[in-house]
C-alpha cells in the first residue's frame, strides 16, 4: 500500500497538450475516482501513473518515490484495462498466474495465491476455461484477479465496468467496493459515469478538458460544487440553471423571482447563475408557477419536466403528483440548498 502524489503533471502528444498541470494527492488505502467527460484526459493520467505514457512535465510519486523514470514493472502497480486485455491463449488460471510465473515465484505460492484470488472473486469453477468461454462479467473478474494476485501497492482501473450491462454494472460496483474494503489497497479508478463515482469513491477528482475542476468527497461535491461544470456534472438528473440578476434581495429572471440562499454574500446587482437540484424543489403554495410538460413516475419519486416562464426545469418529488400535462404547479426551492455561480467565471459565490 502506498500514497500516490501527482504534482503539476502535464502531458503533450506532439504539440497538443492534453493535461494542463494536474495536482492530486491520493492517501494510503484511499479509493480515488477520476471522473469527467470523454476526452478530458482521465485515461492518459492513469496510464502515466502506470508508466505506459511518459510524463511531459511535473512528477508522479508512488509511496514517496518519484517514478518518472521508473519502468512500469518496477512501480508495483496493477492495472485493469477497459477491454480487460486478458491473454486469449491462456486459461483463467494462467492469466492470473502469469505475473507470478515471470517473477519466478515457487509453484506452491502461485497456486495458493491464484486459488485465493479465485475464491474471493468466485472464479474457482472457471479456472481451466479460456477467456472466450467466459461472460463479460467473468472476464472482468479475471482481470481483477490478475491484479489481486500481484498484491500491488496501487490498483489502477480504467473504466472497468463500461462493457457490462446495467444490472451487472451495479453488481460489480458493489463487488469492487467490497473488495477494496477487504484489501485496503490504494486504488485509482477512472470512469465517466458520475453515479459510479458517487457510489464508490472516498474521494472524487472531477476533470474537464485536461484540468482538475474539483477534488473532494462525493457528498462534498454534491453539496458544494466549486463551479458550474462540477455542478452540472455531478448529480442525476442534472442541476437546473437559471440565468439572471440579483436585485433587492432576490434572484430575478424572465420576470419571475426566486429566493436567495441564506448565506448570500454581497452579490447585489450582479449577473449570476442560479442552480437548483431537481430534488430540492418543493411543492409550495407561495412558490412560482411552473407549467407541467411531462410526468415520469418511477414509484419512489416522480420526475416532472416543466417550464418556468421560458426556462425548462426538472423537478423530482417524493410525493405523488396529480397534475396533468399543461396544468400549472407552484414550486419553490429550499433556499438553504440553492447554488449561486458567477455568470462569467462560473465560480461558486455562496
Amino acid at each position: 500500500m502506498a500514497t500516490v502524489s501527482i504534482r503539476s503533471v502535464r502531458k503533450a502528444f506532439g504539440s497538443t497538450e492534453v493535461l494542463h498541470g494536474v495536482d492530486v494527492e491520493v492517501q494510503d488505502g484511499e479509493f480515488v475516482i477520476l471522473v469527467g467527460p470523454s476526452g478530458c484526459g482521465k485515461s492518459t493520467l492513469l496510464r502515466m501513473i502506470a508508466g505506459l505514457e511518459n510524463i511531459t512535465r511535473g512528477e508522479i510519486a508512488i509511496g514517496g518515490r518519484v517514478v518518472n523514470n521508473v519502468a512500469p514493472k518496477e512501480r508495483d502497480i496493477a492495472m485493469v484495462f477497459q477491454n480487460y486485455a486478458l491473454y486469449p491463449h491462456m486459461t483463467v488460471r494462467d492469466n492470473m498466474a502469469f505475473s507470478l510465473k515471470l517473477a519466478k515465484a515457487p509453484p506452491a505460492v502461485i497456486s495458493d495465491k491464484v486459488g485465493r484470488a479465485a475464491d474471493i472473486l468466485g472464479l474457482t469453477p472457471y479456472l481451466d476455461r479460456y477467456p472466450r468461454q467466459l461472460s463479460g462479467g467473468q472476464r472482468q473478474r479475471v482481470a481483477m484477479g490478475r491484479a489481486i494476485v500481484r498484491d500491488p501497492q496501487v490498483f489502477l482501473f480504467d473504466e472497468p465496468l463500461s462493457n457490462l450491462d446495467a444490472k451487472l454494472r451495479v453488481q460489480m460496483r458493489a463487488e469492487i467496493k467490497d473488495l477494496h474494503q477487504r484489501l485496503k489497497t490504494t486504488t485509482v479508478y477512472v470512469t465517466h459515469d458520475q453515479i459510479e463515482a458517487m457510489t464508490m469513491a472516498d474521494k472524487i477528482v472531477v476533470m474537464h478538458a485536461g484540468n482538475v475542476e474539483q477534488i473532494g468527497a462525493p457528498l462534498e461535491l454534491y453539496d458544494r460544487p466549486a463551479n458550474l461544470f462540477v455542478a452540472g456534472f455531478i448529480g442525476s438528473p442534472a442541476m437546473n440553471f437559471f440565468k439572471g440578476r440579483v436585485e433587492s434581495g432576490a434572484f430575478r429572471f424572465d420576470g419571475a423571482q426566486l429566493p436567495l440562499p441564506r448565506a448570500a454574500p454581497g452579490v447585489n446587482g450582479a449577473s449570476v447563475i442560479y442552480g437548483v437540484r431537481p430534488e430540492h424543489w418543493q411543492l409550495s403554495a407561495d412558490g412560482i408557477d411552473a407549467v407541467v410538460h411531462v410526468l415520469e413516475p418511477t414509484g419512489s419519486e416522480t420526475q416532472v419536466m416543466a417550464r418556468i416562464a421560458d426556462t425548462p426545469v426538472v423537478c423530482a418529488f417524493r410525493e405523488r403528483i396529480t397534475a396533468q400535462p399543461g396544468e400549472s404547479i407552484r414550486i419553490a426551492p429550499d433556499p438553504a440548498l440553492v447554488h449561486l455561480f458567477d455568470e462569467k467565471t462560473g465560480v461558486r459565490l455562496n
Binding site: 512500469p72 492495472m79 486485455a85
Partner: peptide
C-alpha cells in the same frame, strides 16, 4: 495482436 496485451504483459513484468 492488441497493443493492450503488450501493455498488460509489460505491467505483469515481462
Amino acid at each position: 495482436i492488441s497493443p493492450a496485451l503488450y501493455e498488460a504483459a509489460l505491467l505483469d513484468g515481462a
